[in-house]
Nucleic acid binder design. Structure first.
Lengths: 192, 192
DNA sequence: TTAGGTAGCCAGACCGGTCTACCTACTTGC
DNA sequence: GCAAGTAGGTAGACCGGTCTGGCTACCTAA
């Protein structure tokens, strides 16, 4: 075999990612997941404690995926401005990578919408969004020659803009709206 | 009696609004709704065809509520700038009005996140957001002395900003972030 | 041998939805 | 004034189906 056969765990995570994104978490049953993964139910419970555990793994992976897309984009960026825009590109890349039957916005955010206030999954999503805002702030700090105060404020604004664009893009089923937000941001940075 | 007793329909809509917002749609069962409303199950199915019908009524009412808050704010606004900001104030008002156990962002958006791509509820939410963007565009048209092209572009940007702020506010459980977006917008409009 | 896979049945809870049977409050015809 | 009808309420049993999760029994490759 050229590469080790896909484990049940990997198959389950792949299947769950698609189904959770398309039909929501509550809207996705265990049976649907194992059917898509082509795996026995026992294998699911051998690899995960519960559905909630699988959901948590899903959120963690999606977070890591997005950071990976970001790292790749930021690696080719030269100017600080390009690095700021790399965050936008990362979401765009992930959008094109992740969806199968129509773009539905940020998977992490959609998941958070289904989770109740105390849920640890919600916290994970919150931390993800804060981390992204932090990335923007760092690159803006470079761009603004170390004016951290101003960078922080502008980063929040850009984070809101990006967030709103992704959300609206999900509603319209058109990830091009994220590109619009990128253009707006690019223009805004030119005007600094 | 000073005023007619609350009908079962009204009780159900009130109860459903709280539960849908707090626990999500799929996370809210019929039994929980009738228990909170203090109403017989038969009364639910006398007033609504199905749970989906109740959900649709919920979305319609939340849309109307927000527009009512907006109308009230825009009535006291004098300058076009104030009218643009009235949309932000409306969301802020609605946030403070609607939540009971912690702010969770835009109820319409959270609901949309649970609905699959073809669902008519999703379209209703999309239209709502487009209408809000339209309101902003109209007021910006005034502000920009009829430059509709520019108003439209800026309206989209402000709509993204507002949307992102509400979303992030929901994650943080703090509606003050919407106020931040309002301040950003106010500053931005001053710089026009 | 054994770890990890398969198929699939089962328990118990909960789901949306239907139904019967009874109970007010109001309206209407006489 | 009052009986009859009606509209809309109550409580709650019940239905078929689906949910998560546990289980047995068998298979297969290292």
């Amino acid at each position: 075999m050229p590469y080790p056969a896909e484990t049940a765990r990997e198959k389950l995570l792949k299947a769950a990612a698609v189904l959770f994104y398309e039909n929501g978490i509550a809207g996705t049953g265990i049976d649907a997941i194992i059917a898509r993964a082509g795996v026995a139910k026992k294998s699911l419970y051998n690899n995960f404690d519960s559905k909630a555990d699988l959901v948590h793994a899903y959120l963690t992976i999606r977070h890591a995926e997005l950071l990976a897309f970001y790292e790749r984009r930021v690696a080719t960026a030269v100017t600080p401005k390009d690095k700021v825009l790399a965050v936008f590109d990362a979401y765009q890349d992930h959008a094109e990578f992740a969806y199968e039957h129509g773009f539905r916005g940020c998977g992490l955010l959609n998941a958070a919408a289904e989770l109740t206030v105390g849920d640890i999954g919600r916290d994970a999503v919150r931390r993800h969004k804060e981390e992204v805002e932090g990335l923007i702030a760092n690159h803006l700090g470079e761009l603004l020659n170390g004016d951290a105060e101003r960078a922080k404020m502008l980063a929040r604004q850009l984070a809101f803009l990006l967030e709103g664009a992704i959300t609206r893009a999900g509603l319209e089923g058109n990830s091009a709206l994220v590109l619009e937000a990128r253009t707006m941001t690019s223009d805004m940075l030119d005007r600094l």
